[in-house]
Nucleic acid binder design. Structure first.
Length: 559
RNA sequence: UGCCUGAUAGUGUAACUGGCAACACGUCUGAUUCUGGAUCAGAAGAGUUCAGGUUCGACCCCUGAUCGGGCAACCA
């Protein structure tokens, strides 16, 4: 059934629909996602991926994956592999083979030679410091390079020798001859090529010169027939240059890409800069790019996020041009929303305390039928063995509970989920005053699902102490305790690290059905939250990562 | 002091292109519940940065201010 809700269009969709209605680009929509393989993709990239691939799909167009690999000093194949994996995992498929800017090095070079012939580019022998100094400031115009008026022949000769590897790194660059007085800094004779004797992850040592982003990007879009080249706001100032480079090669009969900028994603309590994320990895503040606390796609995956939840998040945050900081709460809402529908409910006690049912026939047990997910009737049920020796959550018992505490306390009654109503008769403390065992009686007439028994306020989860399996559970919290850790002028983002971002629990007791859980399997630990099996988990040593806790209106109320 | 760009509830995004501001998250009630989850019902919360102008009528158009973001890598 078609949803005929007239969902409003974001500004990019409006542009596209206008183009379409005017018959621009022959009615074609062709987008691209152009990551630089110099790090792992993060949730901000996910926004861009969903945008670009989403637009391609929505308008029956196509979307390329293109690696913007013009800087061999920073790029590695490891990143290429992880990026492809992440894009696929998110559920998108790029058109044909992945593309690489390096596929176009030859063509780019030829066009550069043409520009030299037409007097539009020149070789500059100065150092980067000298060039930088001559560029002026946003307020003051720059001045001409002393090499700006070299002859075409000399420029061509020098450029070819740069290519041939005759000169050391940094000794010369090729610059576009534009306007040193332009109020737009990008237009002040930007560098097109620099010398880099560095091995490239794909072209090896074939090239000793590499094109700069501004020169390579638009031309690559052009070569691929991209119609809508979507990038983030910081490239707004580059648009005139993007268009200028295109002007030098564009054929009127060829699709001409247009650059459209949108505001990148910012998430509260997290950092999004690849450089800073790299720093966390290199300083071993996190275990790696896929540490579950990282906002990387691989980190979120390991944390237990689903592709669906990330896509619906991207959908919810929208696309616009104004700077934004999205509340991480919205991301968390998105996972809960999805996992609530699909994650099987299981019993897990993270901080166990012994509970003994004193009137239960000793030595006996019984099998109880427990539904797997009340939100999903298709999910069926499973059987759990119930007996007199149990574990419950330490939090679920209080020696002197307040009135609103709907759990266990001396003389209080509570239901054990899927089992019976029990009453706390007594409890035992050790010499340190720590409760070590709770003694209860159960009411055999209150078995779950049988008749309409009386109601009690609270329901607890439990595990059978004789059958439980052990597990390690990792509780994650936000990595930073400041809303905008990178937004402080005189303070480093590392000053805001949350010391409690990871809490490892080693004495957790799980229902036995979890013994065979596999990495990335997702569950709702009843009453606690959503948990996902870590990639390093094994049957001998189960490890679960907490994706996100359940909403808890008790903690709010109790404080 | 230059150029580019943006400004709508706490946060994000809308408003059929001029017809007295909606949706989501969050918050707060209440119902329901064998998860203090989910679900359901409801409420509070902005008069659209400010000041002028055009108009019968302005979030939308014009003028001017204010505030925010970006730009001076041989990074992308």
């Amino acid at each position: 059934m078609e949803n005929i809700e007239p969902k409003s269009l974001n500004f990019i969709e409006q542009i596209i629909e206008k183009d379409l209605s005017e018959g621009k680009n022959g009615g074609v929509v062709y987008t691209r996602f152009p990551p630089e393989p110099n790090g792992y993709l993060h949730i901000g990239h996910a926004k861009s991926i969903c945008l670009n691939f989403g637009l391609g799909a929505k308008y029956h167009g196509r979307t390329n994956l293109r690696f913007d690999d013009t800087n061999p000093t920073k790029e590695e194949d490891e990143y290429v592999q992880s990026i492809m994996e992440d894009v696929r995992w998110l559920g998108f498929q790029w058109e044909g083979e992945p593309r690489y800017a390096s596929d176009y090095f030859e063509q780019l070079y030829l066009w550069a030679e043409e520009m030299i012939q037409r007097g539009l580019a020149y070789v500059d022998d100065q150092t980067s410091e000298e060039i930088s100094a001559q560029r002026g400031t946003p307020q003051k115009p720059g001045i001409f390079s002393p090499f700006r008026n070299r002859s075409v022949e000399e420029n061509l000769d020098l450029f070819r020798r740069m290519k041939a590897g005759e000169f050391p790194d940094g000794s010369r660059v090729l610059r576009a001859k534009l306007d040193m007085a332009s109020p737009n800094m990008q237009m002040r004779d930007p560098v097109m090529y620099r010398i880099l004797h560095s091995s490239h992850h794909r072209t090896g040592n074939k090239w000793s010169i590499y094109p700069m982003y501004d020169y390579a990007h638009g031309q690559s879009d052009y070569l691929e027939g991209i119609t809508h080249s979507i990038c983030t706001l910081e490239f707004e100032n580059h648009k005139p240059l993007y268009n200028w480079f295109l002007d030098q090669i564009a054929d009127v009969n060829h699709v001409r890409p247009q650059q459209i900028e949108f505001a990148r994603l910012n998430l509260s309590y997290t950092i999004m800069s690849k450089r800073k994320l790299l720093e966390l990895v290199e300083k071993k503040i996190v275990s790696g790019w896929d540490d579950p606390r990282m906002p990387t796609i691989s980190g979120l995956r390991r944390r237990g996020y689903t592709p669906e939840s990330i896509r619906s998040f991207a959908d919810r945050i929208g696309v616009a041009k104004r700077d934004n900081i999205i509340d991480v709460g919205l991301l968390e809402f998105s996972v809960r929303d999805h996992l609530n529908k699909v994650a099987p409910r299981v019993f897990a006690v993270l901080d166990p305390v012994k509970l003994t049912i004193t009137n239960y026939p000793s030595g006996s047990s019984e099998w109880l039928e427990i539904e797997n997910n009340p939100e999903d009737p298709q999910s069926g049920s499973r059987k759990l063995e119930f007996g007199p020796n149990l574990f419950i959550e330490r939090d679920d018992f209080m020696e002197n509970p307040p009135n609103k505490f709907f759990r266990l306390g001396p003389g209080r009654e509570v239901r054990l989920k899927g089992a019976y109503i029990i009453k706390c008769e007594d409890f035992i403390k050790d010499e340190n005053g720590v409760v070590v065992e709770i003694l209860c009686t159960y009411d055999p007439t209150t078995k779950s699902g049988e008749g309409q028994s009386r109601k009690v306020k609270g329901t607890l989860h439990w595990v059978n102490a004789d059958k439980a399996v052990d597990a390690e559970v990792r509780l994650y919290d936000r990595l930073f305790n400041d809303e905008d850790p990178a937004g402080h002028k005189d303070l480093d983002f590392l000053d805001f690290l949350n010391p409690d971002s990871l809490q490892i629990l080693n004495n957790c007791k799980l229902e036995p059905t979890l013994q065979n859980a596999n990495p990335e399997d997702k569950f709702q630990f009843q009453r606690l939250g959503y948990f996902s099996v870590d990639k390093n988990s094994s049957q001998d040593h189960l490890i679960f990562n907490r994706t996100v806790p359940l909403k808890d209106s008790w903690v709010k109320q109790s404080k």
